[in-house]
Design a protein around this nucleic acid. Structure first.
Lengths: 355, 355
DNA sequence: TCACTTGCCGAAACCGGTTTCGGTCGTTTT
DNA sequence: AAAACGACCGAAACCGGTTTCGGCAAGTGA
């Protein structure tokens, strides 16, 4: 019988069994209990079993923050989002989060999420989390070519993993989807259908992925034996309105493209509007291939051909990497790329007049 | 000069200034420093200023977990998601999260997110978080009529707020959107256009919102002077496939409805497919009004008329309530409802033959 | 048989804060 | 002028764990 400790009256905050109570119940010192539970080798196996069983019975669970004060680990992964970020990136979040926190949970870790209103705010928030030690490491979504988050975390010696590469990610752990390959494939496929004037709606070039997708686009054009008309490539189109604006600009050219590759589904969706306003039928007069796999794309008219990747998987991989990194793994072994998968729908086809 | 503490060599984990160092720097005891920073009244204002300034200069920031061990608060809000939940609910998440963590950040709190694979798992995860004290309170999305999370948290005396009401939420804090009102309005509007046979595709009735929407639907029918044909109301349709199945069933009736109200956009989107397969044109042969404001709805053909609510706002409100609740506010003052806004698009109109 | 390990555990220090308690000093009351 | 008081701060306990260190008893080798 454990006795003596259930005396507290009804309304008091649920009593919790502490390590001291557990040790008293067992008739041994709390240091022994602690070491038994934490797998120290100088505890007899028999004792360890007794302790574990009693802990189970009494429902003992150590306070995370009490442990942290000595170990220095909060057992929490940090993720800082910024709100004003182009909404094109938002839909990912749900799956991404699931992936991360699922993997974290398996190890008894949790995910600490914070948001900031601007990219500068993100850095500030990360600093705060680091200084208060609310997170032991960070997942950094949407790597930038020059990324101040990376600079800070390196200096502060805090573990992190990148979703995407940076301009110089030699000494970083990262995971990325080879979206440049997807862009190349998009171009090649369009060229294969007979398109020769192919446009490209890209994102802001301070995002590393935008730079990579640009390379992919150009590489595809090169492989297809086509030359890039710089008039047909536009940057900074990451939203529906900008997609409509820049996409429309391409359509209004004297010699408009017969196909447009979009780095983002959102841009393509904006382009749809521009085309509609001009009486251009996508899939017939104009081919479009994009990237992201947003649910809206499936319902657009015509359904949008796009590249998709499971962001839940990405989240899980990143969480796994970060966990390993925190536990001391070398960055060199924490790098990984995967391919996006083409979802062929009806927004692309042979150029008008060739069908 | 603070002196003496910068001796550590290069590669060591960034040195942090502790309260002891700060107190030494100031030439006073650490208890005085602590109380000065925490606003105790027995500290001279002049002293408090000196301390605050020095803290600022040295960049002192207390460790969250070191504070927690004495105060018992981790300064973190808990949110436990379940993965297998019908995907119809997922898109909300991004905005919702933003809202929560934004509000939390303003108070120096963070958001701890965990996921579970099943609803039972959610309860287990919450228990774990509570016992380890990784969160001081919880936001419970998607209240159920009988909600085990509520039962547990009440017993454990842990603060929480509900997103939605439960069957008996008298002694709970909650925020909800009056979706029953939306359903009523949908019916009234359809009836006003001349519809008399109106169907209803509802969600699982163990969700409180489903029960409320059912009431709203019936209330609308009643106010319109229409009687409810039970044949035309179906439950448990929360996904695209089930929307197609159950929606199709309604369309296949001998005397099919001329309009269908959907408790969820996902259901409506499934219904769109069913209609398409049967050669029925939505907006002309069949009117549809749904609820959620998913982005897909805007791109569906025809664009879906639906009720929308800003989930970022909901998140912020819930976080605010939870914070207040944790600080001791009474549940009676922590209740709030808001209305969803109708987004009129092209999926509804007068019944065939009346236009 | 005695010194030397080795296995196992308890005592106590420690982590970095917060909170309680009591003491000093200048000021007011009587 | 003594007593009472209030403002202000320091010493020390405390929170609930983890980790270091030392000691005892049994086992081992010479």
């Amino acid at each position: 019988m454990s006795g003596k400790l259930e005396k507290t009256m009804g309304t008091v905050r649920q009593k919790r069994v502490t390590i001291i109570e557990l040790s008293q119940h067992l008739g041994m010192s709390k240091s022994t209990v602690s070491r038994a539970l934490n797998g120290y080798p100088d505890i007899a196996e028999k004792t360890r079993l007794r302790v574990k069983q009693a802990a189970e019975e009494l429902g003992y669970r150590p306070l995370a923050y009490a442990q942290a004060i000595r170990t220095g680990q909060a057992r929490s992964l940090g993720l800082v989002l910024n709100i004003d970020s182009d909404s094109g990136h938002r839909p990912f979040l749900a799956d991404f989060l699931d992936g991360i926190s699922q993997r974290a949970s398996e190890e008894g870790w949790t995910l600490t999420v914070a948001t900031a209103a601007s990219f500068d705010g993100v850095l500030e928030t990360i600093k705060q989390l680091v200084e208060e030690r609310k997170a032991d490491g960070f997942i950094l979504p949407r790597a930038r070519v020059i990324d101040p988050r990376v600079a800070y975390l390196k200096r502060a010696q805090v573990p992190f993993v990148l979703y995407g590469r940076t301009g110089n990610s030699d000494d970083c752990a990262w995971f990325d989807i080879r979206s440049e390959k997807a862009m190349e494939e998009a171009v090649l496929r369009l060229a294969g259908l007979g398109h020769r004037r192919i446009g490209f709606l890209n994102a802001y070039e301070h995002y590393m992925y935008a730079q990579l997708r640009d390379e992919g686009f150009r590489s595809g054009m090169h492989k297809a034996g086509l030359s890039v008309d710089e008039q047909l490539v536009r940057k900074g189109v990451v939203s529906k309105p900008s997609g409509e604006e820049f996409g429309g600009a391409l359509l209004d050219l004297d010699d408009p493209p017969t196909a447009i590759v979009c780095a983002l589904d959102q841009a393509a969706l904006g382009l749809y509007r521009a085309a509609e306003k001009r009486g251009i039928t996508i899939g017939r007069d104009l081919s479009v291939i994009a990237y992201d796999g947003l649910p809206e794309g499936e319902y657009a008219t015509p359904p949008l051909t796009t590249f998709r990747f499971d962001n839940g998987e990405a989240g899980a991989i990143l969480a796994d990497m970060l966990l390993k990194r925190i536990k001391g793994a070398d960055v060199a072994e924490l790098r990984m790329v995967q391919e996006a998968r083409l979802v062929e729908r009806l927004s692309h086809g042979p150029p008008r007049g060739m069908s």
